[in-house]
Amino acid sequence: MIMSDKLCYYSKLRYVNATEKFLFSVLTLTACILSRSIIIAFLVLAVTGILTVYKGKIPLSRYIKLMTVPIVFLFLGTLAIFVNVSETPLDAFAFPIGSYYITGSVQGLFHGIQLICTALASTSCLYFLSLNTPVTDILNVLRKLHVPALILELMLLIYRYIFVIIHLASDITVSQNSRLGNIRPSTAKKSFAAMVSSVFILSVRRSGELYDALEARCYNGTLQVLSEDYPVKISEILSIAAFEILLYLAVIVIRVSGGTL
């Protein structure tokens, strides 16, 4: 059901050190939103895209499909920035409605395009992380960053149980469908409510069983899991460092020169 989570286990970049990947995507992401420049956005989009699709061997069609997930928000949100309603027309376009104009300025259009590029580039950074790094590896990175152990424990258990619960929910939905439970909107509503409440009951029961199982194995507040650490490669570190330094230099140049693009 959750495609990107499966894909990251097939990625060829999976066994690259997770801290490297985390730092790369967070630094690149920061560069994107700091500069808000179209050139940087295209550069980042190209680099992360090539790394994910070419190096990581994530299928291109899947990658494109995943990139379009936030498209509705992007479209609607940017529409609201483009379009203004005012009594005086602005310079790019203006449609009169009564005594008002639906209008927009060239500046606004430009900002909108800038925003779309930045947002897409940032999403590609996020995908670089999530399509090449399993969540458990990300949690290990967070542990190194001294996130409280309680939160990490909770995150690990939540992550594990997301899949258990999705499985429960989809099993119940399949059996409801096979009994024509979703044939009309009214029955669909009833089935949905029944499904969610039985999932709730089953999950609460599961949590009790989980605790019993943990306690039987001497659980005292921390889950002891062996974490595999993949070696840091000097060549990777150097190329990431070189890329980031160049990227940030470009960001500084763009900011200093006025940041029109």
């Binding site: 959750i2 424990e153 909770l154 258990l157 939540i158 992550y159 594990r160 149980y161 997301i162 258990v164 619960i165 999705i166 929910a169 979703n182 909107p185 669909a188 509503k189 089935s191 949905f192 969610v196 999932v199 709730f200 999950s203 609460v204 599961r206 949590s207 009790g208 989980l210 605790y211 943990l214 507040g221």
Partner: peptide, 25 residues
């Protein structure tokens, strides 16, 4: 102590209901 697994399951439950497709007219 038992609250730990319960909290975790609650979190997972919230995630799952927010990712389920709901029937709509």
């Amino acid at each position: 102590r038992r609250a730990m697994t319960l909290l975790a399951i609650s979190g997972a439950f919230i995630f799952v209901i927010s990712s389920l497709k709901i029937p709509s007219v």
